[in-house]
Amino acid sequence: MTFDPFFFMKGIQGRIGSSQSGQSQQQVAYLRQLQREMRVEETLHIPLTELNVIIFDIETTGFYPDKGDQIISIGAIEVKGDVINEKETFYSLVRTEKMLSEEISQLTGLTDQQLQNAPQLSEVLFQFFQFAQDYTLVAHHANHEKIFLQHALWKQFRSPFKHRLVDMSLLYRIAEPNVKLITLEECCEHCGIPIVGRHHALYDAMLTAQLWSTYVKKLHEKGCETLKDLYELFTNG
């Protein structure tokens, strides 16, 4: 399966050529309105088998955005309960200000030319949050994604990151506490999920979505029905 390196989303087309200043004002207004309308606490009580989530992954040039590392791609897919909606996906490269290291280029398969022709980070973030709406976000080892989104949203829009973000590793720690899993590869191999396209943001999001679906079912069998149940089991464990 191959993907165009830019947008796959709910009929939303990128507006790369429009006025940057006017668009920025619209983007800030949209994000602030989205944050005002979010009902983060309500998601704690929705059964995991019914919870709408956006499972995503970002590829970056390193680990420290405050030291100049940058987002170079974002991929995401919608999941309703334990059902993966493969028609609802998002993927975009992100324009960067400096050349990729050879290590990152080899790891991700991305080139400087691809990134130089990609949309600006502000545009990609705006499109991503239009896609994600107020859904709960999920990522594998989510602290990496959280740090970069917090930094990027504040730098681009002077906006905080307010979405609920669930770390996928929390689910398998609760569902299988005696199984030691760390990497995405280890988790997929343990669950019999074929590993395809590692370190491509959309492929990694799709792998994580399969893990989410698997562990939502396992947690349901253990009587863990909601995020509230999940957090309480983790805290008391």
Rank of each mutant, 00 (worst) to 15 (best):
E41M: 10
E88T: 02
Q23E: 12
A76V: 05
G68T: 02
I54Y: 10
T111E: 08
A76P: 08
E86P: 00
R95Y: 09
R32N: 14
E37C: 09
I55D: 11
E42T: 10
T108D: 11
P47A: 02
Q25W: 11
L48I: 03
E59V: 01
H45F: 13
Q113D: 13
F56M: 11
E41R: 13
I104D: 01
T49D: 14
R39G: 01
E59F: 07
Q113C: 00
V79R: 05
E103H: 12
I55V: 15
T60W: 09
G75T: 06
Q35H: 14
I84G: 00
D82C: 07
R32W: 09
D66G: 00
L93A: 02
Q113W: 07
P65N: 00
E42R: 13
Q23H: 12
D66R: 08
I71S: 05
V94A: 00
E97P: 00
K98H: 13
G75E: 08
D66V: 06
E86Y: 13
T96K: 02
L110F: 15
E41T: 09
G75P: 10
V94F: 03
I54G: 06
I54V: 15
K98M: 05
K67E: 13
I54F: 10
A76R: 04
E103P: 00
E86F: 11
F63T: 07
